[in-house]
Amino acid sequence: MLAAAVIPLTSGLIITDLATGALFINAALVYVLVALLMAGWGPDGAYAMVGGWRFLGQLIAYAMLIVMPITAVVMRAESLLTTQIVVSQADLWNIIYQPLGFVLFFVAAMALAFLPPFDLPTAQGELAGGVEAEYTGVRLAVFRLGRLVLIVTLATATVIFYLGGWQGPWLPPWAWSAIKILAVSVTMLLAGRTMPRIREEHLLAWCWKLGVPLALLNIFLVGILVLVFP
C-alpha cells in the first residue's frame, strides 16, 4: 500500500511524487519480508515457521533482482521520480530498451509475491499452507487480501518502470494505466499456474549464480546505451 502511494496512474494522479520514489517503492516492498517472517514465526508452529524462513531466504536473494533492474531504469531516467521515469519512456518503452531488466524484474516480482512457481512459503503440498497454515477466518482473509494488493502494486510498478506508464495512443491516460496494470496482474497470476513448484535450493542457486550476474550485466549494458545514445 505504501509503495502504491508513490506510483503514478496518470501524470497528475499520484498520492505523493517523492524525489526518492523509485527507492521508496523498494523500501516499502522489503517490509513484505518482515511481515511474512513475523506471520510465519508468530503462531509457534513448525510448518508456518519453515514457510517464514523460506521466504526470508527467497527474498534476500530476489530483493537484489528488484533493486538492480530499478537501478538501470533510474539510470536511463536520470531521476528517482516515478513520473520522470514514465516520461523518459516517451520514445521507447523500457521493455524494449532493457528487456533483460524487465525479465529479471518480472520474475523477481513474482517471487516477491510468492506466486507459483515460487510459492514456497505457502506450499500447499509439502507445508500444508506454510505461513498461512495456522490462520483462519478474518486473519486469513486479511493475509490473502494483502497479497492481492501486493500483486496489483507490483504490476503497477512493472507498468511504470517498463511499459511506459500511462502513455499510449487514442485512449485517455487513465485507461492505458488500467489496461496495462490489469494485463500484467493477470499475466502474473496465470504465468506459473501450469509450472511445477521450484525447489528452494534451485531457486536460490538460480538467483545468486545466474540472476545477480545478469542484473549486473543489464546495468552495464544500459550504462553503455545511456552513454552512446544520450
Binding site: A19, Y31, L56
Partner: peptide, 21 residues
C-alpha cells in the same frame, strides 16, 4: 534528509533479516 531516511528504512529491513537468518 529524505534519501538517507528511505535508504535507512529499506536497508535495515534486509540487514536485520539477514542477521536473524
Amino acid at each position: 534528509a529524505e534519501f538517507l531516511g528511505v535508504l535507512q528504512i529499506m536497508m535495515m529491513a534486509t540487514e536485520m533479516s539477514i542477521m536473524a537468518i
